[in-house]
Simulated scan of single mutants.
Amino acid sequence: TLKTKIESVLSSGFLDSPLLKNNIKVSSGNFITARPIGVIDGTDMEFTGQIRKIDSEAIFNKLTNKEIVVISPLGYSPIGDVFNLSYEQTAAHIAQSVKAEKLIYYVNSSGILNIHGELIPELTFNKAKRLIEHIENPKNAPFISYNDFNILKSSLYAINNKIEKVHLINRNIDGSIIEEIFTDKGSGTILTEYSLENIRSAREVDINQIRNIISPLEKKGILADRVHKDISSFYVIEHDHNIIGTVALYQYSNLLEVACFAIHDKYQNLGYGKKLLKFCEKKALELNIKELFILTTQSEHWFIENNFKLTDKKFMPNARKKIYAAERNSKYFTKGL
């Protein structure tokens, strides 16, 4: 069985392994009490069961003793019957019982895919719930298998029961779990109760992180660093509490300047720039401003792709002309809202 294979691998000693002399302990047991599902629509489900109780104290004792606990999706009744359990639900219930911070599922693809076969890297509880309701039946989602659909539903249960993060990663890719947990980009889909992204006003304590993003662009002549002048005009976009982008907004009467617009190298081409730009547009509309403008030396194509138009500098606000650095020869782009 798969459980036996896992125990065998964890018990093996390889000469080139740093764990050779560590004597890994592996434990299993009757941690789950179950009951029969019973008769559903006239069909006796026999030894298909559902969880009644998980002995979390026994599991904690094993973990405290530095043992790896391997639990099969089997439950035992007080009268000696053994029931098959849904492995997706079993994992979610165990995670809830031991108050785990993370739950990791292996799935058939590189996470959850949309109707175009594209990876959905992040899902909040509400978005996952709407996705499940929209799909209803896995047949309506060509890129989500029946098993992965059930895993998605169990992930929702886990998030709803205080598991902070649920990761869905590709079972067929070596190292996918390491890439998902220990790299910024990840390798699958992560589910959380609330969005990992947050756009907020910058604070004094953010200055060093903002400069880390801006400085490489400043050295290339792409951006001019203004953070030292007025941090109150800056906003940052965070991902999982890390600052990954920044922008400064300056009002000139009925125009709003978008300045120091930058996304960290590791997070480019992932849609964060568009999200930050939408935030700028929203802030402009809140101020009853119907036009944005930017000055750029090397990013004109990205702004053109996002509906900015090259405009004669004579239309630049007079107050902005006074501090315009002619030696940079930045191009002037505007966007109507």
Rank of each mutant, 00 (worst) to 15 (best):
E257L: 11
P216L: 01
L255K: 15
S145R: 03
S215M: 06
F125I: 06
E238Y: 02
R35F: 09
A141T: 02
I231P: 03
V236L: 05
A262R: 01
E257S: 09
T43V: 15
S155E: 03
N254V: 04
K5L: 14
N172Q: 15
L103W: 08
T183E: 11
G13E: 15
L196D: 09
L337R: 09
A100W: 08
G336R: 12
I190M: 14
E136W: 01
Y87E: 14
F234E: 03
K5V: 11
Q89V: 13
T183N: 11
S86H: 09
S187Q: 12
S11V: 00
L223D: 02
L156H: 08
Y194W: 03
I243Y: 01
T64R: 15
F315Y: 15
D225P: 07
I54Q: 08
V82S: 14
P18W: 09
N22W: 03
A34E: 05
T48E: 15
Q96Y: 05
G117M: 03
L156S: 07
K290G: 07
K290N: 15
I163M: 10
I210E: 12
I112S: 10
I199N: 05
T311H: 04
N160M: 04
L85V: 10
P78E: 13
E7T: 12
A141F: 01
L168V: 10
I177P: 00
I79G: 03
E122S: 12
L152R: 08
V39F: 00
P36K: 13
T311A: 06
F47S: 09
L85S: 09
I178M: 13
D55T: 05
T296I: 02
L15P: 00
L277P: 05
I178V: 15
E286D: 15
D265V: 03
F149H: 11
I181R: 08
E57W: 00
N65V: 00
T246H: 04
G49I: 11
I304E: 12
L337P: 04
F83N: 05
N61P: 00
G38P: 04
V9W: 11
S299Q: 12
E281A: 02
L123Y: 04
N254M: 06
G42L: 09
P78I: 08
D240C: 04
V258T: 06
A224H: 12
